[in-house]
Design a protein around this nucleic acid. Structure first.
Length: 433
RNA sequence: GCCGCCGUGGCUCAGCUCGGUAGAGCGUCUGCCUGUUAAGCAGUUGGUCAUCGGUUCAAAUCCGAUCGGCGGCGCCA
């Protein structure tokens, strides 16, 4: 006889005699009746064990199992409003049992952040995290679906690289055999620009690494980066891609797994309200808004924490800020043909203070212009020679962006901290476990 | 890197201001309980107070250093 997933039982599509297997998430006994909350990969099911039904020997054995022991249980499925989830299993017998060797350190009680981080390898079992990880999986699925339906090809770039994309101070140095100057990737962008001449519209989903010593609730040193690059596309075109992609993901989460979204703390209706396209404001307008709220900001400054507040309060959906000054954007951003001091760039800002979720724009496709931009940024063109080579053979206008998956999940679910969006978060003080 | 806060039984914390060699709740364990929802009740177990050094008759408590952690900033996704 096969084993049934807890999720299928809770969905109400199962009846009669079945078997389930999982881990004891919690267990309570009151002498003659015992309630075991059994957790498998799909959810939590209350399993009710009666002394008179299973006999003295089995009842005693089950009662003595520590939390997080694993076992197989069989019995009858019953709808019951008293059980969490509305369904429960009346246990008639047990199969294989894998008892926990020690008492489980994560009791059903408050724990501090440090203790939970030290025990992350166990804490990932927590039903709240389990739920978020399921949503995360759906996020990846929805993104890939959207790309497939719209003719994009998924491809990969190397994680070891020799040139900086974003800025030298944020690079992780790697010991690479005998060689100096090898780093972990911050973005696939340079390689993506090579690949568009091979595959056309492309995307990747891969980790990126940033060595900046962040100490905030929305930064990781290793994050999952969803990046897109498209030939024959300008700034407005690539923002349209971002609009459609983010909206599709939000709607898919709300439509397909509304109960999981609700359990994570977000009303699915909020996600369904999102509409394409998101509002766009120019960098100049953004500066005026910030200044109008009495917060200090000069043209040419980047948005800091203090500037973001007044800005994000103006919108209840994500919004694009376009046309950032050249001085605060890397060399590969294309200058506005009508206004050289600003770039054809766009950042998508999440509402509610979650910050930037997409950064992107149109790239410089002209060789001489790129050469000049590299020099202006104080960089050595030698380090970018293969990248500049791309402008020699069939260069076309092209654009792309990078989306921080954990940031977006954090915003979509309304989470307090980015570490909850990924099973094993990495930040400047955490690489273990 | 900078600013602020914290480190006391397995966990969450109190005690520190006004020094006199430790206390609660939860967990563990034992017993009771046939509908619990972080179950309940009674009892039990468990700590050289992060580390090193200093002051003192005496340090969890005062001073210094070190290590570790948390929150925030600049920057970014």
């Amino acid at each position: 006889m096969g084993f049934i997933d807890v999720a299928d039982v809770l969905a109400g599509g199962v009846s009669g005699e079945i078997s389930v297997r999982g881990w004891i998430n919690n267990s309570r006994s009151s002498g003659g009746i015992m309630f075991m909350l059994l957790r498998d990969g799909s959810g939590l099911l209350q399993c009710t064990v009666r002394r008179e039904a299973v006999g003295e020997e089995l009842y005693g054995r089950l009662e003595g199992l520590p939390l997080e022991s694993a076992l197989e249980l069989s019995g009858t499925v019953r709808e019951d409003g008293r059980a969490p989830g509305g369904w429960e299993l009346s246990v008639s017998g047990a199969g294989a049992v894998y008892p926990a060797k020690l008492d489980y350190p994560l009791v059903r009680k408050e724990h501090g952040v440090e203790f939970l981080a030290d025990n992350r390898h166990l804490y990932v079992r927590d039903p709240r995290l389990q739920n978020i990880f399921h949503i995360r999986a759906k996020f990846f699925e929805a993104a890939r679906d959207w790309f497939r339906e719209h003719g994009y090809t998924e491809t990969q770039s190397p994680s070891f690289m020799t040139a900086s994309v974003e800025g030298g101070s944020t690079l992780f140095n790697v010991e690479y055999f005998e060689r100096e100057g090898v780093y972990l990737t911050q973005s696939w962008q340079l390689y993506a620009e090579a690949m568009i001449s091979s595959l056309g519209k492309i995307y990747t989903i891969a980790p990126s690494f940033r060595a900046e010593p962040h100490r905030t609730r929305r930064h990781l040193s290793e994050f999952w980066h969803l990046e897109v690059e498209e030939p024959w596309t300008d700034l407005e075109g690539i923002m349209g891609t971002g609009d459609a992609l983010v909206t599709h993901i939000a709607h898919t989460l709300a439509d397909d797994i509304p109960e999981k979204i609700k359990r994570a703390g977000r009303d699915p209706a909020e996600l369904l309200k999102l509409e394409t396209p998101f509002p766009r404001i120019s960098y100049d307008e953004a500066v005026e808004i910030v200044q109008g709220e009495g917060v200090e900001m000069f043209w040419g400054d980047d948005f800091g924490w203090q500037q973001e507040g007044p800005l994000t309060r103006k919108f209840d959906s994500p919004f694009w800020v376009v046309g950032f000054p050249s001085g605060i954007k890397p060399f590969y951003h294309m200058p506005d043909p009508d206004r050289a001091e600003v770039t054809m760039s766009g950042d998508l800002m999440a509402p509610e203070g979650y910050g930037e979720i997409i950064g992107g724009g149109q790239r410089v496709h002209d060789y001489d212009q790129l050469h000049q931009r590299v020099l202006d940024d104080g960089l050595d063109p030698e380090n970018y020679s293969w990248y500049m080579d791309l402008r020699r053979w069939g260069t076309v206008p092209h654009s792309g962006f990078g989306l921080g998956i954990e940031r977006v999940i954090m915003w979509m679910l309304g989470l307090e901290h980015i570490r909850d969006t990924i099973p094993f978060p990495r930040d400047m003080r955490r690489v273990y476990p």
